[in-house]
């Protein structure tokens, strides 16, 4: 299963990229599991660690950790919003 991941704002800067395609490993089927999977990449991905405040959206809708992932999904990670 292939998904597209987007990173925004301070998160985009800390991970050093704004988007990537990812082939999901077996068993990585929710937003929460994807977050843990990404956190394990190393120090540059510290913003994904447990306890860090991070928001996620799947196909442009806010998505809690238990949201299921599907083929071709657009998954976005970003810090809490500060518009207005």
């Amino acid at each position: 299963m292939v998904i597209r991941i987007l990173y925004f704002a301070s998160l985009r800067e800390s991970v050093g990229q704004e988007a990537e395609e990812l082939v999901l490993p077996e068993g990585i089927d929710t937003v929460g599991k994807l977050r843990s999977h990404i956190a394990a990449r190393g120090a540059q991905w510290d913003a994904f660690a447990v306890g860090k405040t991070l928001r996620a959206a799947v196909n442009q809708r806010m998505a809690p950790a238990d949201t299921a992932l599907g083929e071709g999904d657009e998954v976005a990670f970003f810090p809490p919003v500060t518009g207005g």
């Binding site: 970003f78 810090p79 500060t82 518009g83």
Partner: peptide
């Protein structure tokens, strides 16, 4: 509308200050 825009609409502010650039934290 303004109250929910502040917490749910995906916008992020980065400020230019005398100390340099900084991302605004959510309140």
């Amino acid at each position: 509308i303004m109250d929910f825009l502040k917490t749910e609409a995906p916008f992020w502010k980065k400020e230019e200050t005398p100390q340099g650039l900084r991302w605004v934290d959510a309140r």
